[in-house]
């Protein structure tokens, strides 16, 4: 959901965008060197109207775009910088619940979770019992 305000803004308004990009750069280096992963909560930063869009435009869209449907959609996209992912959670009304930059090889939310796999196995067993 986007909102427009009758206020002029420029990219350098809070001066938070550039340090954030450097923080991401350091995290990518750490991922490459040691495998350490990083998660940055973008909603914890005081961003001016339009600055989130500047960050998103700078990161761009890479090769992978996944949509998770759980309590509303989540968009999990790799940016043009491999290893840097943008994770955006929405509720069923498409309101933003969280925006994170994850520096990792694969956001853990994309992996099938043990509890869900076990549930699925039970359902599969039930299906097999009724089918044959």
């Amino acid at each position: 959901m986007t909102h427009s305000f009758n206020i002029e803004t420029d990219a350098g308004l809070t001066h938070n965008v550039q340090p954030l990009m450097h923080e991401i750069r350091h995290a990518v280096q750490a991922l490459l060197d040691t495998g350490e992963t990083t998660v940055i909560d973008l909603r914890s930063l005081p961003l001016a109207p339009g600055e989130l869009e500047v960050i998103e435009a700078t990161l761009g869209r890479g090769e992978v775009n996944a949509v998770l449907e759980a309590m509303g959609p989540s968009e999990i996209s790799e940016t043009v910088f491999p290893g840097v992912w943008l994770v955006r959670h929405f509720n069923a009304d498409k309101q933003v619940m969280g925006v994170f930059v994850e520096i990792t090889r694969m956001p853990s939310l994309l992996l099938s979770q043990n509890e869900d796999i076990a549930d699925g196995l039970r359902q599969l067993d039930e299906k097999l019992e009724t089918m044959f």
Partner: peptide
């Protein structure tokens, strides 16, 4: 609510 949904809920809660 799936485990993924719950983890998403926890991420939003932490935020």
């Amino acid at each position: 609510i799936s485990r993924r949904g719950f983890l998403k809920f926890c991420a939003a809660t932490a935020s």
